[in-house]
Amino acid sequence: MPADHALFDETIHAPHRLRVCAMLSAAQKVEFAVLQDHLDLSKSALSKHLTQLAEAGYVTQERAVRDARSRVWVSLTPEGAQAYRAHVRALLELVRAEG
C-alpha cells in the first residue's frame, strides 16, 4: 500500500475504535487504563474493541508489572498505524470531495 494511500477501513471507523487508534497513533504505547479512562468504557467493552483491532492485526497488547501492579500496554502495529493513517486520509478526501 502506498504511504499516502487513502483507504476507508470499517474496522477502524467504529467511533470507539477510531479513538483508540487515534490515541495509540500519538505515542509508542498507551496503558489500557488510560484508554479506558479517556474513552469512558468498561473493561469488557474496551477489551472487545481491542480484540477486534488485534484480530485485524492492528494492535498488540503486552503485560508488564511495575510497582507490584500488573499493567497492560497497548500499541499500534506498523500495519495498524498505516491503516489508521490511510483511514484518516480517506475521511479527509471525503470531507474535501463534498466540501
Partner: peptide
Amino acid sequence: DGGRPSRAEAQAALDSARAAEDAVR
C-alpha cells in the same frame, strides 16, 4: 464503497480522532 459516511459524519470522525490524538499528545 457504497456505505461511506456523509461529509458531516466524516468531519465529526476526524474531529473526534484529532481530539483523541491531542489527549495523548
